[in-house]
Design a protein around this nucleic acid. Structure first.
Lengths: 300, 300
DNA sequence: GAAACCGTTAAGGTGAACTGATGCTCGATG
DNA sequence: CATCGAGCATCAGTTCACCTTAACGGTTTC
């Protein structure tokens, strides 16, 4: 019988591309991963890995096997979720991953709601880099994660993960003076000469600002890199530049700031391992998130 | 992550009902099975087994978990089948289980066809007790098996196994003198005073004869217990009794024997582990069986 | 009431799997 | 072209999980 632990290594290899990365993700040494994959290959009787240069790639047979691995792992996840539901007590730790912006804007009230509805549940928040969310969910280091998806910055689908929509907010253009024009492009173009305030380079929010401006036909001159939208608005208020902020980041804006609604939107989703959607802790957390965001949520 | 090997033990327990039987089926000691199931239960956090007297029974949570185990094992079987197909060479051993009657009547020509079409394949036949077919298929000791199903003796469905129909033959009443009457019941009743020749008690074929007569309204007086239908016909020919034989057992009957076709039938199916239907060796063997039985097969 | 059966527990041995070290190949860099 | 680093494979050593043996307690049956 094929060893599921080894299949898990193979799946991880399909996502990460190198044995070293797999080893780091699952806290093994590369040696162990190499040995186990070699054993899997021997057992399979077919070449699953192809040594190309100093990397390894999956053969077609390897890719096919990964699909089966996904299915098996999903079903095991379902089984675990059902056991947790049968356990009933709903205690234990839920590990939540979130970007800094989501942490500040959504999680506090969600955790309050969760504490109220499920006292036994012990939430544990990890602020994680967006790129690390998917791997850490797969590896079981996180149970649920909040992920954003902007127009112009689509999230790539992950076969091992599932997600449900949570928020769908409009984006606002934050300026000092009212902005004229019709349509997103015209309004952004009206600010092409202004200095811009964006998030830290490398983040989704940063890419969102840059790409939106590029779609309007210009490259923004980014003066400040600030992640917290409240701070961003404060900077806008004192004339340091203009910025794009989502509705959740634009609550209670400074008086001097003008917010112009755009048609572009930010969608927030709750991601979890495929199969874990029935896990009572996941269900409870999603419910709490919905409660916490019910005043913002717009029908998507 | 739930351990699939342990889930396999749990599934086997669902079928067999005692830990000792599971241990024997999978060639472990009862101690090992007990320990592993205890570990699974600890891991699950829910009671999966209920100690009732000197036996154990599955709790509802245990039953639910078994369903997941079935699904996982089926998918692993599929993966293995796909790997075998990718391997392509189609070598190795196929273990075939069959009742004695099937062995004699079908397998020789099927194996000849297989040897012709797939030289690399190494068939290995095991004559097995009907009751042992399902467990040994599940345990991986057999890859395919021929199973019979008579009217009055339906086979019980097995969630872990799959099967395709192979044969659907009429049954014959073998006598010395022509039998009058219309309908199966009338014809059998005409022989109610005759001595009967049936198979060994405990076999399906034995049950078939007894139940058919009971359905006709009498209990047959069984004088001889003989499994081989050719021998049965020879006994009928010398006046030792009457018998029910399937078409495959009635090829080339002795001159003195009268065969009266009945409406009751015997269906033969090829069983294999769920998920293994795509395994090239299974595909090849089924094809060979169809070739070997094509002269008998009636549209079912 | 004895015997057979079944499941659990404790103790001990074995093998699988992981770590750490070493060597090799490939690719990038100056 | 030489050097360096990244990445994978292999080998030896160790640890730990799992299985077996042995012994015990409870239950059913004759």
């Amino acid at each position: 019988m094929l060893d599921v632990r080894r299949l898990r290594l193979l799946r991880e290899l399909a996502y990460r591309g190198t044995i070293a990365a797999v080893a780091e993700a699952l806290t093994f040494t590369p040696s162990a991963v190499s040995q186990q994959l070699a054993a899997l290959e021997r057992e399979a009787g077919v070449a699953l890995l192809e040594r190309t240069g100093r990397r390894v790639a999956l053969t077609p047979a390897g890719v096919a096997l990964v699909r089966h691995a996904e299915a098996v792992l999903e079903r095991l996840e379902q089984a675990a979720a059902e056991l947790a539901a049968a356990r009933g007590d709903l205690s234990g730790t839920v590990r939540i991953g979130a970007f800094p912006t989501a942490t500040r804007a959504i999680l506090p009230s969600a955790l309050a709601a969760l504490a109220h509805s499920h006292q036994g549940l012990d939430p544990m928040v990890d602020e994680v880099d967006p790129a690390e969310v998917a791997p850490r969910l797969r590896a079981g280091e996180l149970d649920v994660a909040l992920v954003h998806e902007y127009d112009f910055v689509p999230a790539e689908p992950d076969l091992a993960l599932d997600a449900v929509p949570l928020l769908d907010e409009p984006m606002y253009l934050a300026t000092i003076r009212p902005v004229g024009g019709e349509g997103d492009a015209a309004r952004l173009l009206a600010c092409r000469e202004e200095p811009w305030i964006a998030s830290t380079p490398g983040t989704l929010c940063h890419a969102m600002t840059v790409r939106a401006c590029q779609a309007a036909g210009f490259s923004p001159r980014v003066r400040h890199h600030i992640d917290d939208f409240a701070t961003v608005l404060a900077m806008v208020a004192v004339g340091q530049g203009v910025a794009l902020v989502p509705e959740l980041g634009a609550a209670d804006p400074p008086e001097d700031v003008t917010l112009t609604a755009l048609s572009m939107r930010r969608r927030t989703r709750v991601a979890f391992r495929r199969g874990a959607g029935g896990h009572p802790a996941v269900v409870a957390l999603i419910a709490a998130l919905r409660v916490a965001t019910s005043h913002v949520r717009t029908p998507g």
